[in-house]
Design a protein around this nucleic acid. Sequence first.
DNA 1: CCTCCACAGGAAGCGCAGGAGT
DNA 2: ACTCCTGCGCTTCCTGTGGAGG
Length: 402
Amino acid sequence: MPSFSELAGEQKVFRDKGVLSPHFVPSQLLYRENEIRKVMQAVAPALHNSKARNLFVYGKTGTGKTCVAKHVLQKLDEEKNLRARAVYLNCRIYDSRYKVLQKVISSFSPGSAKTGYSFALLYERFLDWIEGLGDDGADGKHVILVLDEIDVVKDLDNLIYTLTRANDDLKRGSVSVLGISNKVNFKQRLDTRSKSSLCEEEMVFQPYDADQLKGILTQRVSTAFNDGVVLPSAVNLAAAIAAGDNGDARYALALLLRAGEVAEKKKVEKVSEKEVEEARKAADEDKAAEIVSSLPEHQKLVLYALAVVSEDVHYKKLVEEEGEKYYFSGEVYERYRAMAKKMGQEPRTSRWYREYLHELETLGLINSVESGKGVRGHATLLRLSYEAPKVKHILEKALLAE
DNA sequence: CCTCCACAGGAAGCGCAGGAGT
DNA sequence: ACTCCTGCGCTTCCTGTGGAGG
């Protein structure tokens, strides 16, 4: 339970944490004027009683796709045009044709959200609403479906087909799609017909560079934090880190949020480079923990064997190189074999063990070097990329869950 | 010098699960 | 509902390589 004085202390750092949340849409979106204009151009026809153009938007995570879309929806809302309607859906939640249509219907008439209607019935109600036989007096609506993370829809071909077909069946009004995705190659999985209708118009969001990230962070810092709390050098560092990592604005904001929390916990009043650096480390470890726990069982065991060996202070068979302790791959393999057997598991062969090591290395969980002189022939030397006790702790939890 | 060690990694093949075709 | 096919995870077998040690 926090005390009130602690809560008061928190307010020293943050003014409004929500501003740093990935769901926050700032009133002014920086560096995306062209993108906003293009999306608005695609949507604009709906305001003049005709069909909006389909648009497909892609770009890496944290490049502002969702933000731009939501921003345009807000502007559309301000127009108070009864005929131009937009519905935003995240396809990770509404991941099938049925669920999408159901959500659209429940968004205009709440209470009818029950499942169990046949798809045909759903479709009829959808058309009726657009044509205006409903209750709001707007006949012939022009509906824009914003489908975020559209690549996860299981039967996307069907959905697109249904929507194109709806435009033929409608006597008044129209449906169009604004698709958002971070996967470039997912288009290849699509039927040529749905591809050409969905990607009628396309645009790519480029990652932000360090300067732009700096601008975005500075903009948010002024409302998220109290004045003077975040040092400019901290903002620069967060921007630089995120720029090096795909130019992901979401990550940059998360870093600052965490750095602020670190400062709170340490009861310091400034967020400096040090706090940002700690936040980066924590975020890094979180990511590693996530990767580790999703590893196949035997890869976990291999990693665990290396962690156990690394932690054993009496362990003698090791080589020091550039201040890091490395362990013999063969020894680790023997440990792994013993542990697997103890757990009633048949150990994998050494050939496959080598493949595991490759995977663990490409995932950034371990580092390996070839042994230099002093050892017979070629030995491979291994070390953990993260601290052994931490890795061991995560693995013990993950292996217990089995 | 040759041999052996401690590995790397290619090739072939096996059993299984899940999707496509009929 | 049935087979058929394909991809995946894995084993078995094999060839290659550089230095240590006899």
